[in-house]
Design a protein around this nucleic acid. Structure first.
Length: 482
RNA sequence: GGCGCCAUCGUCUAGGGGUUAGGACGGGUGGUUCUCAGCCAUCAAACCGGGGUUCGAAUCCCCGUGGCGCUGCCA
């Protein structure tokens, strides 16, 4: 299906791709995909001081991670300054805009005066009533001027796809600046000029832009162009219900990648923040999301980012992905923890698959495979002191471990069932509960008080390593209790 | 200050004139069990306040309160 739907994601490169930006990009992407339209990336880098190549790269990297691939772009707003100026000139010629010669100082003085008198300050249109001669004189003197938009009387309303009909009295809007006195275009001008050039049909953005919308609509009208449709998304908030910022919550979506979150889970999670499919489903694939997406499902209230739910969703994805999809990602974390060796993708691949299957039911992030998998991959693992104190403290623990090694060695097949039988038989003949063998064995074999079922652990750990560790426990100095 | 937006369990939300106000995350309890996770069962937990309209309001309207946003020669 193709259509003329064109949407854009237009981040300013002031930070990283934070979750709010990512969610905005995601909804734009979903809408484009749903309607067979085009998703365009435009970097709003007009404030050059704050732009840097790394920051732009970080935004693109974040989008790539979530597979929010733009159909067009990235375009850079800073490349279109000339066009923005031409748009301003057009407005000037059609008398929808005027030159303002007021200096910042003069403006500040008048603003302060107004405020001290308790009046609401809006630009007083001083320069609008300048005579032709005065204007010419300013111009001849080469006096710098800004170009202001002449806000018409009346009211501006639009039908926001999320909020419904929204109306503003133009009296509330001052004659905002289009072109600064150094000739550079401001945000409203640039955005409108760009969106017109790019033939954007739907503007989907954060609702912090709701109050900016009438200004932009006025600009479209003055230019004789039908404004696009607007849809303003609720903000994403931190746990304190405040707008998410560097101070709380995450900064960049890539931080979640580094935390071991799967992009599929993040995508799903972000889609559910401020949007609902209308039923009780929580796990939605990309394809389902595309099909179900609609503005009706978007809520109007801000949404708190809930890390607990993200982690839960991630565990769901970890347990639903095929091993083929999971393995390359587990490889990455193992690599980073220095636990990888290439034969794990060669001769030992089947073994790695069994390890992944063993570990995945209790994994919430990719990193869990590295931390819980460590004892399976190297002898260099730590024994949790708390676990040791609790389960390895008794005098005869070592002997029992040695006896267990003997019993297991004679168990026959190195599989969970025979191993369990051997252990339980030993417990019987020793006259102790199975637990008195199991718990110390767990700590001995994994270094931890919690692990998957001990017989599965033994099976995956392998005969050599299991017996070695149990016997080492017998010969090692008794665990000192401190 | 002005203007705008918003308001259902702790969180994400469904619903929307008459419902036991539903689901999910998280939490509690019990079961399964070698621990944990899981799974199963189960419990607690919400319509911001006040006025209207109405036979009936969480739902519609108004006011208030609170939160957020905009109010720049920032974007």
């Amino acid at each position: 299906m193709t259509s003329n739907v064109r949407v854009r994601f237009a981040p300013s490169p002031t930070g990283f791709l934070h979750v709010g930006g990512a969610r905005t990009a995601l909804f734009n992407w979903l809408f484009a995909r749903k309607h067979g339209g085009r998703f365009v990336l435009r970097i709003e880098d007009t404030d050059v001081e704050r732009s840097s190549q790394e920051v732009i790269q970080a935004i693109i990297e974040g989008m790539m991670w979530l597979e929010l691939t733009p159909d067009e772009g990235p375009f850079f707003q800073s490349n279109y300054g000339e066009q923005h100026r031409a748009t301003a000139r057009q407005l000037l010629e059609s008398e929808h805009a005027f030159r303002c010669f007021c200096t910042r100082e003069a403006l500040d003085a008048r603003r302060q005066l107004a405020e001290s008198e308790g009046r609401v300050w809006r630009y007083d249109r001083a320069c609008l009533s300048l005579t032709e001669q005065e204007k010419q004189r300013f111009l001849r003197q080469g006096g710098p001027y800004a170009v202001r938009f002449l806000v018409p009387q009346g009211t501006t309303s639009f039908n926001d796809f999320v909020h419904g009909v929204t109306e503003f009295d133009n009296k509330e809007i001052e004659d905002f600046i289009l072109l600064r006195s150094d000739g550079s275009p401001t945000y409203h001008l640039s955005v409108v000029s760009d969106d017109i050039r790019m033939r954007i049909t739907h503007i989907i953005r954060g609702d912090d832009h709701l109050s900016n919308t009438p200004k932009q609509i006025l600009l479209y009208r003055a230019l004789g162009i039908e404004p696009p449709t607007f849809a303003h998304l609720p903000m994403i908030l931190g746990p304190d219900k405040k707008r998410l910022s560097k101070r709380h919550g995450a900064v960049s979506v890539l931080e979640y990648r580094d935390m071991g979150i799967l992009p599929e889970a993040m995508f799903n999670f972000l889609a559910l923040l401020g949007w609902s499919p209308g039923d009780d489903r929580q796990l939605l694939s990309r394809q389902e999301l595309i099909e179900l997406f609609s503005f009706e499902g978007i809520s109007r209230a801000g949404a708190v980012f809930d890390l607990q739910k993200l982690l839960w969703l991630d565990s769901q994805y970890i347990n639903r992905l095929s091993v083929e999809e999971l393995l390359p990602r587990v490889r990455e974390v193992l690599r980073r923890d220095g636990l990888w060796s290439d034969d794990l993708d060669g001769p030992r691949r089947p073994w790695l698959v069994s390890l992944i299957e063993l570990l995945r039911p209790r994994s919430r992030t990719l990193w869990d495979f590295a931390t819980d998998g460590r004892a399976f991959l190297t002898e260099d693992f730590r024994v949790d002191s708390e676990a040791a104190r609790k389960y390895l403290g008794e005098e005869d623990t070592g002997q029992r471990m040695a006896a267990l090694a003997e019993a297991l060695e004679k168990a026959g097949d190195w599989n969970p069932e025979p191993l369990e039988r051997a252990l339980r038989d030993l417990a019987d003949s020793l006259g102790v509960s199975a637990a008195r063998l199991i718990h110390p064995a767990r700590v001995t074999l994994t270094g931890k008080a919690v692990s998957p079922g001990i017989f599965e652990v033994m099976a995956v750990l392998g005969r050599e390593r299991t017996l070695y560790r149990l016997r080492r426990a017998a010969t090692a100095a008794p665990i000192s209790i401190h």
